[in-house]
Design a protein around this nucleic acid. Structure first.
Lengths: 111, 111
DNA sequence: TGCCATAGTTACCAGTTGGTAACTATTATG
DNA sequence: CATAATAGTTACCAACTGGTAACTATGGCA
């Protein structure tokens, strides 16, 4: 059986599974900013606020590898690269929504 | 106005606000394991699976400071310390639920 | 008397993460 | 001819994170 495809080794607990994919501040922020729609690299960098190019690229590569994000390169000069969420990426919206709602209520209490 | 109480400096974005409180793998796992109910330190350590004493204590202290977790010490020997979620901590359940559901579906797809 | 148990704390060390700055390519513009 | 623009990559360094192991306290038990 030489063609055995390695199954991803996922944790038994579903919460941990989710954490392996987006258990990371940067990825959550990328999701937040891509959920409304496609963005260019530079736009994304600006909208996230304070992230270095290095880290942003690394996180995007990671999410691309995990099929959460699409990367589309336009062969222009200067280069244009557009990032968008895959369907799988979009399917994380309920988590982001829950985080949004909780944060809102938390801030409302603390005024 | 000497009694001005310092307002917590929270990010404008609610998602980021949530991240400042539980944007951390360990805290999510602690929430997961305390949502069903009170646990002693040792039980929590075991149920989380692979966390060192040092890290677990640090995270619990942090969550206690942020009023997510209650710490109750019983003056016995050997000492008994019980951890439970505050109401605020419990209110994070929808986020955990969303993460649970997503993880389940993700694993189902990848079988 | 000496050891066990629990819930820590601390010092030390290793690995990971993240920032900065310099470098890349290519074409349009002044 | 030099510069600007975009989306990177790379090297180097600092800071943060996390693990291990040794130490703490105290009462019960052999």
């Amino acid at each position: 059986m030489p063609e055995q495809i390695a199954k991803k080794e996922l944790p038994a607990c579903p919460v941990e599974t989710t954490l392996t994919l987006i258990g990371d501040k940067w990825k959550v922020l990328i999701l937040r900013d891509l959920l409304p729609g496609t963005k260019r690299f530079g736009e994304l960098k600006k909208s996230i606020g304070s992230v270095s190019q290095k880290v942003l690229t690394a996180q995007l590569r990671d999410m691309e590898k995990n099929a959460l994000v699409n990367r589309k390169v336009y062969p222009e000069v200067p280069p244009r690269v557009e990032y968008s969420l895959t369907e799988l990426g979009q399917s994380l919206k309920p988590i982001l929504d829950a985080m949004w709602n909780w944060g809102e209520e938390y801030k409302a209490r603390n005024i």
